[in-house]
Design a protein around this nucleic acid. Structure first.
Lengths: 144, 144
DNA sequence: CATGAAAGTGTAGACCC
DNA sequence: GGGTCTACACTTTCATG
């Protein structure tokens, strides 16, 4: 449960490169291989490390544009709209929030021309507000 | 540059578990170890795989709450506000967008009581709009 | 893309503080 | 509880076809 400086360093190194061999991690944190292995296992079991994953470059995959789309379903359309978001693979993130809007999403686009075709089906059942992302000063930063 | 079904499978498996050994990947995609290694290297160099990373559980780290905060700097405060966002480690994501707001951010919180102390310093230089995240139907999904 | 040998890596058990 | 060491099995890499 308690996480010390060594754990924090292991976590930081694994965030930078999740495929770093245990032996190299061990060297960098100044522990033996088995100890380092054990700590990684503990961090996974504690749930502090949720999973190891590959981050893809959406631009390289043909999605050079992203937008933040806020979606406010009209009365009675909450569930249908949620399903529509789920079934449109361009939506990368979806958060259900308090306040004026109901969903805040991140949408990947092949071009600006793709925006209308994606959002049009929503306009029967929801109001949407779209903001094109010009740049991302940072993404997926960790609170120290 | 061209990505075939095997590459796609490798990418999908690595997204699920970035620390999966090449040998296991090789078995699952039906190739030899070296061929699989070579494909991973190519995917990294193509930029399709941006990086391998550890996903942390913010709740386990003591941040059970998150909020979407939209921030609109008052005239002349753009850069200062951007720096303030950068220097508050609670902000996990920051996107600069077109439209009414200027920044759309994701903020991690230890408790709802932490919201005011974090946002107060902004109120001299920006208008903010906060939406607490009730749930996240999905996060970091990939456009198939 | 596969093979085979060499170098490197991960894991389990015994042990220590 | 957490740490190390050693030894063996597995994995990765490099040359080669």
């Amino acid at each position: 449960m308690n996480i010390d400086e060594t754990d924090r360093l292991i976590v930081r190194l694994l965030c930078e490169n999740a495929r770093m061999p245990v032996s190299e991690l061990a060297r960098k944190v100044g522990l033996s291989g088995p100890s380092t292995s054990e700590r990684i296992r503990r961090l996974e079991n504690n749930g502090i490390i949720a999973r190891f994953t590959a981050e893809l470059d959406l631009e390289a995959l043909g999605y050079p544009l992203q937008a933040i789309v806020r979606i406010k379903p009209r009365p009675g359309n909450m569930h249908i709209v949620e399903d529509m978001i789920l079934n449109e693979p361009g939506f990368l993130d979806c958060d259900k929030v308090t306040g004026e809007d109901c969903f805040v999403t991140r949408l990947a686009l092949r071009s600006i021309a793709d925006l209308d075709p994606v959002l049009l089906p929503f306009h029967d059942r929801a109001e949407t507000n779209t903001a094109i992302i010009k740049s991302s000063p940072f993404r997926s930063r960790m609170p120290v």
